[in-house]
């Protein structure tokens, strides 16, 4: 009973099998549209490769392990950088919220670096860190850190003072207050920050990989795209792009939506 009145028709539409079916219909529509346009226009198959070739390049990429291997490499890098970036952002955000002395410095750093694209830093990063994984991590962390700080600071500042007092009243110490009150209370902001961070880091990583190239053949999904490009394997190129889209949708849907539904929405904290 308690739940049933919460599930409005629009929510039911968004969740469950209905949505998957509708999505599949869309995919079919888009694929069919693509193929019709391609055939109708007599465009070079290098510009618009047949869907069958894209499909077989996609599965071949998984079968031969190259695409999968590059993808795994990229995702591991992202996960590591997201964790490091989120940790650093949390520390800096806390510092900024707790000590107004640092707040100005951190706000300043965010104002300077937030709008700076990671790729613009590439030449400097190469000089400092070389061309290895370290540089990639630096570029991804850069793309993650600043939006995370912005969001976390807003989240921590937005925690209800009543709840903080209630926590203190219960005798919570500093760390308990942080983990039991501040962190869960700012979760909507943390999730929002993670979403931005993920989107940004995914983009930063792929573009960095495309510039960076491969080390010992391992260059991630961006490198996969780039190598398909230089060898003019258009079907492979499209397959890579399709994979990037799929990953984007999957992370958004499976990871973030699920976390959102299990926490923020369940707690009635939707912003």
């Amino acid at each position: 009973m308690g739940w049933s009145h919460e599930v409005t028709p629009s929510k039911r539409l968004l969740h469950g099998r209905n949505r998957i079916v509708r999505r599949l219909i869309w995919v079919v529509v888009i694929i069919a549209g693509y193929e019709i346009i391609r055939r109708g226009l007599e465009i070079s198959p290098l510009a618009l490769p047949p869907i069958v070739e894209i499909g077989s390049a996609f599965f071949a990429g998984f079968g031969e392990g190259d695409l999968l291997q590059q993808l795994v490499r990229s995702l591991i890098l992202i996960a590591a950088a997201l964790a490091a970036g989120a940790g650093a952002a949390l520390g800096l955000a806390l510092l900024s919220v707790r000590r107004s002395f640092f707040a100005e410095l951190i706000d300043g750093l965010v104002a300077i670096f937030h709008p700076l694209p990671g790729i613009a830093l590439l030449p400097i990063v190469i000089l400092w860190f070389g061309t290895g994984t370290a540089s990639l991590l630096v570029i991804i962390i850069h793309s993650v850190l600043w939006p995370m700080i912005t969001n976390l600071t807003a989240g921590l500042r937005g925690v209800s003072p009543t709840q903080i007092m209630a926590g203190k009243n219960l005798g919570m110490g500093r760390s308990e207050l942080f983990f039991r009150i501040l962190l869960p209370a700012s979760l909507p902001y943390i999730i929002a920050g993670m979403r931005i961070a993920w989107a940004r880091s995914w983009r930063a990583l792929i573009s960095a990989e495309m510039v960076f190239g491969a080390i010992a053949g391992a260059g991630g999904i961006g490198w996969y795209l780039y190598s398909k490009r230089v060898f003019m394997d258009s079907a492979g190129l499209f397959a890579g792009v399709v994979l990037i889209i799929l990953i984007g949708v999957l992370v958004e849907d499976v990871v973030f939506r699920r976390i959102q539904r299990k926490t923020v929405e369940r707690w009635g904290m939707e912003r």
């Binding site: 039991r180 209370a185 979760l187 707690w267």
Partner: peptide
């Protein structure tokens, strides 16, 4: 205030 309960 009614938000004194921890809403999570």
């Amino acid at each position: 205030e009614q938000d004194q309960l921890f809403h999570w």
